[in-house]
Amino acid sequence: MGVAIRRAGEDDREAVTRLLDEAFQDDPVSGWVFPGAEYRRRTHPLLMEAFLDATLAEGYVDVTEDGSACALWLSVPAEAADAAHEEGEDEDVPAQVREAVDPDNERVELIGRLTAEIHPEGRAHEYLWMIAVAPGRQGEGLGTALVQHVLDRCDGEGLPAYLEASNERSRALYERLGFAFMGSTLDLPEGPSMWPMWREPRSESLRGEVGS
């Protein structure tokens, strides 16, 4: 698609945090976590920064060369659940994020717990945690290029991929990229729904059919 993509690093931290904040300010899930526009403008960037720092530490961030779009990915091993249990349950990441971001807001913690509960186990996969496109650049295919960049590698390595779509528009995009709804929504308490989606790796012949 002619979109230049590179791996982001610490030097990109401020710009990517700002991009995530701008892209998700009006997202239904962000609105549920931080109800009220003024409250969300003040606090939402702190959560985006926490998510980005976690991804830079444990996963990887792809960004378009012009900085207009980014994707946060985690490589989840097949034994992830067992490994986490063996390390002990005292490292309560959702609670730590809440404490760092907004201690009085239980939804900051709850979103982490609810998404962790529905995360598929047993197979290694790539997890698309978040993808953001600058509001003025949406509809140009940048998000598709970022996701396909990793899906091509998944197909080559025989890896599935997983994500939770936070709105109907993004769900439709992911379906075009080969993701399938897993059958049960995550319905946030008194809030919007999220769609867990899974993508099996495609064979080379199928990739050729899709691209033709």
Rank of each mutant, 00 (worst) to 15 (best):
V3M: 08
A4F: 06
A4I: 10
R7Q: 09
D11R: 13
R13A: 14
E14F: 01
T17Y: 05
D27N: 13
P35L: 03
R42Q: 11
H44G: 11
P45L: 06
L47Q: 13
M48W: 00
E49R: 15
A50R: 14
L52I: 08
T55R: 06
G59P: 06
Y60M: 06
V61M: 08
D66M: 03
C70E: 10
L74M: 13
V76S: 08
A78L: 01
A80I: 02
D90Y: 08
E91W: 13
D92E: 06
D92F: 02
A95F: 04
R98K: 11
A100Y: 04
D104F: 04
R107S: 07
G112L: 13
E117G: 04
E117W: 03
I118F: 10
I118Q: 13
P120S: 00
W129G: 11
I131L: 15
V133K: 01
P135V: 00
P135E: 02
G139W: 03
G143N: 13
A145W: 03
L146R: 05
L146K: 09
H149G: 09
H149F: 12
G158V: 00
L163E: 09
A165M: 01
A172W: 10
L173W: 00
Y174L: 01
A180F: 00
M182L: 14
G183N: 01
P189R: 01
P189A: 07
P189V: 04
P192W: 05
S203A: 06
E204G: 06
